[in-house]
């Protein structure tokens, strides 16, 4: 296992920069997940690291060693493709053994390793099966076994669970995390699914238009999105321009009125994020609002509120407390759930 360092990596398709001076590093045994909307350059990042994509500028280092000029087949990295790309003319064992054969492993050694890996991914004895006969989840496991078999220095996963249904996805993500923990694998994954990223990774990097918009631990990113883009990508819609006035208590002036923010919030213009969990609907003489819709979300109800002369506001309530559509409510805010983001450029 080795560390990965990506420095100022730039890839252009014609005029468009798909990767724009991307800096990213993955420490040994760490799992980093790049999170971003589709078309944001995530796959290209993996392809560039793998040596499948020519780079216009910047550097890729594996274990400190510059990979420029090293062709893909000599980089000794593993890449799990988005749609697996299992070799259709080979059976499961033939697929898993492929990388071992390329490295000149003996037949016996390869067979032993294949059995070991199929056991590891939960498909013992499936070696003779045709890949076409596998379900999506099984293909996924075979692809993982194939990528892991040659013990790559770094494992890259492109939308590892993207094509699977929800239940399977949630189970597999836990399995993967435990597996990587146990094997001490260095992992770079990309996904558009925040749940997947947060569940899988030690660190998350949010990518937008070929740039890293924010990186940090899952809870850091979730707690303190670095920009309105990141906040929106994470699913937050309560964003308004505002101005923070320092003091005790500190307040922020917005279209929703003067709202409390945590003490010590820097003063000045900003974009304000209000988490729906910080919007309470029992605020005695607070902001007047009317319920426009309520959407059942399983563990809570999302209530959309119409505020006169201001953007709509989303609140999260328990099912028992959720008001009905058309109800008039008074809104109060939790200072701890309000986050100051940099103002819009």
């Amino acid at each position: 296992m080795a560390s990965l360092d990506v420095e100022a990596l730039t890839v252009r398709f014609g005029e468009r920069s798909v990767l724009d001076a991307v800096d990213l590093s993955v420490a040994e045994r760490e799992t980093v997940c790049v999170l971003g909307p589709s078309g944001g350059g995530k796959s290209t990042l993996l392809r560039a690291v793998a040596g499948l994509q020519a780079v216009d500028a910047g550097r890729v280092r594996v274990a400190g060693r510059d990979q420029a000029g090293v062709p893909a087949h000599r980089r000794d990295l593993g890449l799990m493709f988005q749609d697996h790309q299992l070799f259709p003319q080979r059976d499961v064992a033939g697929n898993v053994a492929f990388g071992l054969r390329m490295r000149g492993a003996s037949r016996a050694r390869a067979a032993a390793r294949v059995a070991e890996l199929l056991e590891l991914v939960g498909l013992p004895g499936a070696g003779r099966r045709a890949v076409a006969s596998l379900s999506g989840g099984e293909q996924q496991r075979v692809a993982l076994a194939r990528a892991l078999a040659p013990e790559p220095r770094l494992l890259m996963l492109d939308e590892p669970l993207g094509q699977l249904d929800r239940g399977l996805r949630e189970r597999l993500v836990v399995e993967l995390r435990e597996l990587f923990e146990r094997l001490g694998t260095t992992v770079l994954a990309v996904t558009h699914d925040q749940g997947e990223a947060f569940a899988l990774a030690h660190r998350v990097a949010v990518m937008r238009d070929g740039r890293i918009a924010q990186s940090g631990t899952p809870s850091e990113v979730w707690q303190r999105p670095a920009s309105a883009f990141v906040a929106r990508f994470l699913g937050f819609d309560n964003l308004v321009p505002g101005t923070v006035r320092a003091g005790t208590p500190a307040v922020v002036r917005t279209a929703w009125g003067e709202l409390p923010v945590p003490d010590g919030t820097p003063a000045g213009p900003c974009t304000l994020l209000v988490r729906p969990t910080g919007v309470r609907l029992d605020g005695g003489d607070g902001l007047r609002a009317r319920v426009v819709s309520r959407t059942f979300r399983g563990d809570h109800v999302a209530v959309l509120l119409d505020v006169e002369g201001a953007p709509r506001l989303e609140a999260a309530c328990t099912l028992r407390r959720a008001p009905d559509v058309g109800d008039a409510v008074r809104v109060a805010f939790d200072a701890e759930e309000l986050v100051r983001l940099p103002p819009h450029a």
Binding site: A50, P71, A72, R74, L79, F81, F87, F98, P150
Partner: peptide, 21 residues
């Protein structure tokens, strides 16, 4: 699919070997 060849390359197959395999 070009990505099958790429999958082979990432697993250590040279371009010629990837074509053959």
């Amino acid at each position: 699919d070009e990505r099958l060849r790429e999958a082979a390359a990432v697993l250590g197959a040279s371009p010629l070997r990837a074509w053959r395999e």
